[in-house]
Design a protein around this nucleic acid. Structure first.
Lengths: 354, 354
DNA sequence: GATCCAGTCTGTATCGATTCAGAGACTAGC
DNA sequence: GCTAGTCTCTGAATCGATACAGACTGGATC
């Protein structure tokens, strides 16, 4: 077995406290003794204070948790999530804090346990769809957290960093509407829990569970309502996940309808790229000139010429971690709204006259 | 303050052990009592057993550490590292284990501390340049680890997953040599600690510190030695980091030499893409037809038409985590060599006759 | 009626450190 | 020479749980 702090103390003939001080508070003992202790420790193969025991006694861990909606392995396939993580990592780095990525098992009971058992000082909650249960567990544990999805029932002291989803979405939709498009499809992932891929009918946008998706779809609807296109006239498409493949599957058959949409507004760049994939796969003769928009402006979007909404991904992660690591004294400062910008590229154009 | 397990015990009028059992070993008490305890816990706002205390007593943490050479925030910009992380994440997910990403401060003393203080059950060590000190700390702590860089002094019980860097590099270099190229530049990052960007003279490849880089450069040299081009005739270029920008900086001026190389072999796709960037930025008239190769076959390589060596990134991460999470009984099985393949695309071509 | 056993629950030791009040020794100042 | 102050170091209390060896109960077995 590895020697403990006590073993070192015995070897040198000092008290446990003194050995502890040799590691954590060098100013509390003479440097001669300190050297003697460190030497003995080296000799014995003592690996330094046990991190777990130290955390227990000190009352904090020195790492922050990052919680993802989906499977952890999916998170790495989503370029936006990766940029977000990079931001969290940069901030964690500066604070000498580690990041704990906690995978959530599919069963909710197990997922609760996972959040309960995470040894962290706080959480960055990345857009967990139907995240309420997770926030409950975190609150129950008395841990601080920062959420990236605006929630209606957020307490005044709850920290948040994100964008005005609705306004941003409205912006890109207004651009498409301005180009003359009126037959439009909206594409989003997990519109409803366990909904099949493809067209979906909802009485209204309020039925959408995921707050971020709801915000974006609401913004889309806003812009079209303004030009006289009601919610019921919009085609709503569900993707089973936020991936190009799922998006391609969701638009299957869409362009073979008698009156296909002339534009598809996607809830993320990844989905939009999937739509472009689906279009590219059609034989050249049957490739309608559909306008497509995304959301996020991930690196791939520029290469694909995708019109989209830019939001600062890395910044979001960085600020999330910073709000967690040194909380602003002013509660209002704990609520950060990031800027967005409409980025017009080649994937949108005027509606073709037929 | 949050109530402890003891508080719940007192409230129900049972012993602490029983409350502990209610959470961790439900078969050890009647379900009626268990319900009563869980109810009381809910009432009191008890968040469940403290993860840190539990880890201390149990002797394990339930999370594995991932160690990166470089800044944690850089890791997320490297597509290969991201795929690796995805693999680790997938395996961790299956085992119900969390991943701890430990940022290493620049100062070595601090970095040691960071590794010493990480509350984990083991480490996946991702290609830490000059990683020896880190492995020492891990060994000292008595923790298991899996390395992704082959080391000459690896103990027989030390686990490893990776590729035959030298053979793979030799393969792609042989392809380039086969195309007739003889004036060739080799580009790698951190060839020597703190070397400047650009040309570098080394008496031999053995001087290269980073084992992965050394392996690849050796393979390149092997292939050219076979066609009669000696090490001293090869141009060695150092990039300050593994990024497109650094690569572009490293090849500055290279193509304006009196006898510029006709091919550049890069130690990674990211570097190779940087070389292509640099070439693309030159005015069309002064853009020599240079062959460029990468290494890794990251997603971006295909789009850029880059000739490269494919290695299974996600698989590497997955296996690394699995070797850690359930160690093979057979020591030989703890040493996994993954397959590689030469992927020829448009970025290489026959040497132009001048 | 004694014995055994399974099912529940308790008590104590333990995991490996940090903290903090205070004990001694020594120096300085008056 | 005495008081105050500074440096070092010690001891006991504490962080919040889990493990394990029993104690007790009630029923089945012979």
């Amino acid at each position: 077995m590895k020697p403990t702090l006590q073993a070192v103390a015995d070897a040198v003939g000092v008290s446990r406290s003194t050995v502890s001080n040799a590691y954590s508070r060098p100013d509390q003992l003479s440097s001669a003794l300190r050297e003697r202790i460190l030497d003995a420790a080296r000799q014995l193969g003592y690996p330094g204070p046990n991190p777990t025991a130290r955390s227990l006694r000190r009352g904090f861990v020195g790492s922050i948790g990052v919680l993802f909606t989906s499977q952890l392995s999916y998170a790495f396939t989503d370029p936006f999530a990766v940029r977000f993580l990079a931001g969290v990592g940069a901030a964690a780095e500066r604070h000498g804090t580690s990041m704990l990525l906690v995978p959530l098992p599919p069963a909710q009971t197990d997922a609760r346990r996972a959040v309960e058992n995470a040894a962290v000082d706080g959480f960055c909650v990345y857009c967990v769809a139907d995240e309420e249960w997770a926030l409950d567990v975190i609150r129950q544990r008395g841990l601080p957290f920062v959420s990236t999805a605006a929630r209606d029932d957020a307490g005044p002291d709850e920290r948040f960093v994100g964008i005005d989803e609705r306004a941003a979405a409205r912006g890109v939709a207004a651009h498409v509407a301005g180009l003359g498009h009126r037959r439009v499809a909206l594409l989003a992932d997990s519109v409803l829990l366990d909904a099949p891929a493809g067209p979906l009918t909802l009485s209204g946008v309020h039925e959408v569970g995921h707050p971020t998706t709801r915000g974006r779809l609401t913004g889309f609807a806003d812009a079209f309502a303004e030009v006289g296109v009601e919610w019921a006239e919009l085609t709503l498409l569900n993707a089973r996940s936020n991936s190009r493949e799922a998006a391609a599957a969701a638009v299957a058959g869409l362009f073979d309808r008698p009156t296909p949409p002339t534009a598809v507004l996607a809830g993320s760049d990844v989905l939009a790229l999937g739509v472009l994939d689906a279009l590219a796969e059609r034989p050249a003769g049957r490739r309608p000139p559909v306008s497509v928009t995304g959301f996020d402006d991930v690196p791939e979007a520029a290469a694909a010429g995708l019109t989209t909404v830019r939001q600062p991904a890395e910044e979001k992660g960085r600020i999330a971690a910073e709000l967690l690591l040194d909380p602003p004294v002013d509660a209002a400062a704990g609520h950060v709204l990031l800027p967005t910008a409409l980025v017009v590229r080649a994937s949108t154009g005027p509606v073709p006259r037929s």
